[in-house]
Design a protein around this nucleic acid. Structure first.
Lengths: 343, 343
DNA sequence: GTTAGCACTCTGTGTCTTCGAGTGCTAACC
DNA sequence: GGTTAGCACTCGAAGACACAGAGTGCTAAC
C-alpha cells in the first residue's frame, strides 16, 4: 500500500492531513503549496491529489471544495507517516499532578483518570473498569444492617471493592456472620473471582456442607454477591466534542450522544483492545459502530503487574491530533498501571 | 397576585401555557380560541393577552409572533392553576418494575433511580447521594492489600459504603488490623459520621491512647478514611434534552452541558431542597444558575425513616409537563425512601 | 514531468420579494 | 362597558436571484 506512493505523494498527503487536522476544512491545492513550502505549483499538486483520490486516500465533498482525507488516509498516517512524539513535559507533569490526590478508592482513581484524559487531550476520556471476574479474591465481609438486610463486601487483591445489599431468609446473628466470612475467606483464598464461583458451586454440592446451616447460608450469601455486575465505564468530557466544528450540527451531535448512552457497544469495542501490547487506534468506520462514524478511538491497556486489568483511551474526531494524543494515552495508561500495581 | 386576575384571564393564561407546553411555539390569539372552545373572539383574547403581558405573565418575542409564558406565568401555573394528577398507573408499575432488580449496592440503586426518573419523564433524572457525614456509623473494616497499602471500608447504618486505599507508615499484620477495627467499632458505635470525626480527634488527645501504637495507628487510619468525599450526583438522560426543540441550537446546548459539568453548583441548588416537605419546583431563572435559564427543576427529598438523606429530581425545559412529572418525582422519592429505609 | 491559463462547477452570502401569522387600533354592536 | 369585526401594519421565514470566491480539470506550452 505504502509503496504504491512516491515520496512526493506521501509528503503531499501528509500535508493535506495535517492541514485538515488543524482546520477541519477541505484542503485545496493552493493551500498545500502555500503552507508547506513545496516548490511545486498548485497544478502539479492537483494532479497528485487526483491520483490520491483515485487510490482512495482523498475524497471531495463536491467539485469545488478541496479534498478531505479518508479513513484510509488517516490509517496510513498513523501507521507510517506519523512520528509519535515523546510526551510533552508539561502534560506529563499535569498528569502526575492530577494523580497526586490523597489515597482514594479505586473507582475514584479510574474516574479521575478519565477526567485527566479528557482535560489534557481536550477530547473525551474513557476508562473501562477492570472486569471483576478477572480479579483475585482477597476477602469477603458481611455487615449486618437492620433486620434481615446484610451488606456483603467483596475485596480483590488490587483493592477493587464490590458491595451488595442482600436479604437473608432468616435473621443471622453478627457472630455467625463473622464465622461465615472466616469460613469463606479460608475457602476462597487466592482464587480468581471466576474460580471462586465454580468453587462455591462445588462446595454447595458437598454433603458435609449441605447439612451445615451456617456454611450453606454463607455460600448462598456469597453467591448473591458474585453475580456479574455491569462493567463500569467512566466517560468524561463529552462536552469537548461540542467544540469540534464538524459536529456543530444538532443531528450529528444527537447521534454521538446516543452512541455514548449505549455503553455496551462501547465496551465491546474497547474489550477488543485488552490484549493489545500498547496503544491501539480505531479510525472512523473501522470501529464498526455506525454511530461513531466520524470518531476515532485511541486506546491502551492498563495492568497491575503482568495482569491486564482494563482499557483506557480517548475518543475524538477522526481528525484528532494523533501525534499529541497518542503519547498522552500511552503515558496515562502506564501511570495508572503503576498506581494500581503493587507499587 | 392571583386575585388581580379575573377567572377569564386565568383560563386564557392556562390555555396559553398548556399550548406552549405542547408545541414550544409562541401562542397566538386565534389558536387559543380554536383549541379551547372558548366562546370568545380572537380580538377579545388579544385584549386579555395584552393585559397579561402588562402584568408580566406573557412576553412577545417580536410583534407578530404570538406570546410566550414567562417564568412568572409558570410559577402561577404550578402554584395555583395546575391540578396535580395522581400518578399514572402504568408509570407507577414501570417504576416498580425497574426497582425489582436483585439486591444491589446503594450506589447502584441511586444510579438506577436516576435512570428511572429520566426514562419515565423523558427529561433529565438527577439524584444527589446522601451526605456521608449525615449517616450513622455502623462498622469499619481494614483489608490488607499488598505491602503497606490498606483498604479501609466504612459502612453506615443505611448500607452506604465508603472505601479508601491508604498507605500505613509501616507494615501492619492482619491480626493487628482486626484488633484495630474491633477497637474502633466499639468506640464509634451509634455515632453519626460527623460525631465520629470529633470523637476520633478527642481520642487522639487521650494520653493512654497516644502511647498505644496500635490504637493510635487505628485512629490515624480511620481519620484518613473519613475526610469528606465529593458528594456524588447521578445524572442520567442528558440526551433527552436534545429532543427539546428550544435547544435545537448548538450554542444553547453547549451552555446546558457545561452547566451539568459543574456539578458543584447543581448540588448547591439541590441542597436547598433538602428541608422541603415534599415536591419543590424551581422555574427557569428562579434557580439562580444563569446557565440554566430555560430549565426548570422539580425536586423531592428522600429519606430513611425520619432522617432525610438526599434529594432527587427531574430537570427539563421550563415548559415541561409539570402535571405529568410532579407525580413521577414524588412517587419515585417515596419508593426510594422505602427501599433505603428499614423496610 | 511541470506549469500557466482558462472555462467550469459549486457553495456561501447578501439582497429582494412574497407570504402568512399575528398584532393593535378603531369603530360598530349588544 | 364589554365584545367583536375590520383593517392596516409589523415582522420573520422562505424562496428567488445574482455574485464572489475557492477550487477543479483539462489543454497546451515549457
Amino acid at each position: 500500500m505504502v509503496d504504491t506512493l512516491t515520496e512526493r505523494s506521501r509528503q503531499i498527503l501528509e500535508a493535506i492531513i495535517e492541514d485538515y487536522i488543524r482546520t477541519a476544512e477541505p484542503v485545496g491545492s493552493r493551500s498545500v503549496t502555500r503552507r508547506h513550502g513545496l516548490t511545486l505549483s498548485p497544478a502539479t499538486v492537483r494532479n497528485v491529489m487526483s491520483d490520491l483520490e483515485e487510490l482512495g486516500f482523498l475524497a471531495s465533498p463536491h467539485t469545488s471544495a478541496g479534498r478531505v482525507p479518508t479513513d484510509k488516509a488517516f490509517r496510513l498516517y498513523v501507521d507510517s507517516l506519523l512520528q509519535v512524539r515523546a510526551i510533552d513535559e508539561e502534560q506529563r507533569d499535569e498528569i502526575r499532578r492530577h494523580y497526586r490526590g490523597q489515597g482514594r478508592d479505586v473507582a475514584d482513581i479510574l474516574k479521575e483518570t478519565s477526567r485527566i484524559l479528557s482535560s489534557i487531550s481536550h477530547y473525551i476520556g474513557i476508562v473501562v473498569a477492570p472486569r471483576f471476574t478477572a480479579n483475585i479474591f482477597r476477602q469477603i465481609e458481611f455487615v449486618k444492617l437492620c433486620g434481615r438486610r446484610i451488606l456483603t463486601i467483596l475485596v480483590s487483591e488490587s483493592g477493587v471493592v464490590q458491595n451488595r445489599i442482600v436479604e437473608s431468609d432468616g435473621e443471622i446473628p453478627s457472630e455467625d456472620l463473622v464465622r461465615m466470612s472466616n469460613y469463606l475467606n479460608a475457602l476462597l483464598k487466592g482464587l480468581s473471582i471466576s474460580e471462586v464461583k465454580t468453587r462455591i458451586f462445588q462446595e454447595m454440592e458437598n454433603d458435609k456442607v449441605r447439612y451445615d446451616e451456617l456454611m450453606s447460608r454463607a455460600l448462598k450469601l456469597s453467591e448473591q454477591t458474585l453475580d456479574e455486575p455491569d462493567t463500569e465505564v467512566f466517560i468524561e468530557g463529552q462536552v469537548n466534542i461540542l467544540e469540534q466544528p464538524e459536529f456543530a450540527d444538532v443531528a450529528k451531535m444527537k447521534e454521538i450522544f446516543r452512541a455514548f448512552e449505549e455503553k455496551g457497544q462501547l465496551i465491546t469495542l474497547l474489550d477488543r483492545c485488552m490484549d493489545a501490547e500498547r496503544v491501539n487506534i480505531f479510525i472512523g468506520s473501522e470501529n464498526f459502530l455506525n454511530r461513531m462514524n466520524h470518531l476515532s478511538v485511541i486506546t491502551a491497556p492498563y495492568a497491575s503487574g503482568r495482569n491486564t486489568l482494563g482499557v483506557l483511551g480517548v475518543i475524538g474526531p477522526t481528525r484528532m491530533g494523533y501525534d499529541r494524543v497518542i503519547p498522552i494515552v500511552d503515558y496515562t495508561a502506564r501511570m495508572l498501571s503503576e498506581l494500581l500495581g503493587s507499587g
